[in-house]
């Protein structure tokens, strides 16, 4: 009775024709890659966002011989410029704290005055600001580390785009793997398919059997792969915590791209299902 119930739901014997661990194993590995790519994409996006928000518009101005008058003149001049959002003299104690590692406590050395600028638009050329400032305050230097930050942010963005590209590639390879597995199943069950076809089974019936089986195999592989990826990702997120500003194991676990990870098994099912459907239907068209 058990045997009957088992086989009545599987008239093509696909449990045996499409069994083994090869397909789920491959899909598992690809789900692992997809999970890494997802986490990479999210991490790159977070870094780019943070760098750009934090420092992209920051430009510093050094005013040598910074007696009060020159620093004040520079500040006024900068604040008058339309592209400058904010100009702030760096307090002396903070400046000293910044320089202490290099200079030590050496009050004898005169340090330049430093002004922090925030620009409305990060693409503004800081050289032009420097030129205009130099007319009012000779010797003032503009340091545009914002350009570097921008390049880093661009790198992070392209990393993110690459991660998304990897996701698409992984999905395409998964579809190809499922197509190969489907063809193997078709070859193994060719006689059975012809018998069922001869008995009046519709293409949709046969394709549906294959699609359900392959979809489930792919989904189970993806489930295992995703589950395996979570600890590794949590570890990475923990290590990356100081840079992205999250603290503690729980916080880094919560920072994983959960919606994407949870979507991996259903997406794997859909890829397997759709690929099997189209492969089997195309193959069946050779029968009358």
């Amino acid at each position: 009775m058990a045997r009957r119930r088992r086989y009545s739901r599987d008239p093509l014997g696909l449990r045996r024709a499409l069994s083994g661990l090869l397909l789920p194993g491959l899909v598992c590995a690809m789900a692992l890659l997809a999970a890494l790519a997802l986490a990479g994409a999210q991490g790159a996006a977070a870094l780019a966002e943070r760098w750009q928000r934090g420092a992209a518009a920051a430009v510093t101005v050094q005013v040598p011989d910074a007696e009060a008058g020159r620093l004040q003149r520079a500040l006024e001049s900068l604040r008058a410029m339309p592209e400058v959002a904010e100009a702030q003299a760096m307090p002396e104690d903070r400046l000293n704290a910044l320089l202490r590692p290099w200079l030590g406590d050496a009050p004898a050395i005169t340090v330049p005055g430093v002004i922090e600028l925030r620009l409305h638009d990060a693409r503004t050329d800081p050289v032009l600001i420097g030129d205009r400032l130099a007319r009012d305050v000779p010797g003032a230097l503009v340091e545009a580390h914002g350009l570097w930050v921008q390049r880093l942010a661009a790198l992070a963005r392209s990393l993110q785009a690459m991660a998304l590209g990897v996701l698409v590639l992984v999905a395409a390879v998964a579809a190809a793997v499922v197509a190969v597995a489907t063809r193997a199943g078709l070859a193994a069950r060719r006689d059975a398919i012809e018998v069922l076809h001869g008995l009046g089974a519709r293409d949709g019936y046969i394709a549906g059997r294959f699609a359900r089986r392959l979809g489930l195999l792919a989904a189970s592989g993806a489930l295992v792969g995703t589950a395996a990826a979570v600890p590794a990702l949590a570890l990475l997120a923990d290590l990356a915590g100081p840079w992205v500003g999250s603290e503690g194991r729980l916080a880094s676990l919560a920072g994983l791209p959960w919606p994407g990870l949870l979507a991996l098994p259903p997406v794997a099912f859909l890829v397997g299902w759709g690929t099997a459907q189209s492969t089997v239907r195309r193959w069946l068209r050779q029968l009358p």
Partner: peptide, 15 residues
């Protein structure tokens, strides 16, 4: 042209 992995019952039940 019986399906070898199905029981006699399931083969007859196919149609």
């Amino acid at each position: 042209r019986l399906l070898p992995y199905l029981s006699a019952f399931d083969n007859v039940a196919l149609p």
